[in-house]
Design a protein around this nucleic acid. Sequence first.
DNA 1: AAATCAATCAACCGAAAGGTTGAATATCAC
DNA 2: GTGATATTCAACCTTTCGGTTGATTGATTT
Lengths: 111, 111
Amino acid sequence: MSKNLDIIFSALADPTRRDILVMLLEDDMAVTDVAHPFKISLAAISKHLMILSHAGLITQEKRGRVKWCKLQPDAMLTVSTWMHSFGQFEPVNLDSFERFLVEELNNKTEI
Amino acid sequence: MSKNLDIIFSALADPTRRDILVMLLEDDMAVTDVAHPFKISLAAISKHLMILSHAGLITQEKRGRVKWCKLQPDAMLTVSTWMHSFGQFEPVNLDSFERFLVEELNNKTEI
DNA sequence: AAATCAATCAACCGAAAGGTTGAATATCAC
DNA sequence: GTGATATTCAACCTTTCGGTTGATTGATTT
């Protein structure tokens, strides 16, 4: 589990890789399209994508000759959990936080 | 700001450094005491502490011949903020979260 | 079948990371 | 002042990182 944190944190430590993740927020993308905005070679981008994939931050699925890259934000939950166990921050999903809040409010008014 | 993320994420990518941060949750520590549980040399620990310091995750204050290391969790907020802007997670400080919740409950019951 | 396109592989390169050891620099205790 | 203690510096080593280029493999188009 700590090994995962090593891999995830170092995957996130590179600005190109973080940019790629943000791009993938929009939509799934082919490797060539991911590479397009960057000045570095396609091979370099391919390596970055493999690192992100290895960290579990994305998945890649090959359809025909095109390999599609998909964001896999659950891996971020590992970071989230570490920060939580670290004790200083409480990373909470906003939706569940709102659900929790509403539930609390309902309980209060029911009494 | 993105430069900071590079430095902070790569500081967090090393398990020894994360262990040190957790140790410093307990209390401020001298460099030698930080080094004690690890098998690597004191010089190596000193380097790790400089990296953590450079990332803003700790501060170091020299009193006499002893250099005291203090956790500086605000740097973690930079990560927190990135994850927030990334859009998948909502890192919330537990204390302010609780204050907010209590306030909401009070407002509700006052009506 | 031939040419094109998507992506990776393989070999290489320079720089940085993480470790070591031994010497150096302060500061403290006697 | 002498000796011990706390920490860093300096030089070195090996491995990893991020990049390059050119060749290679598969799928697609014409």
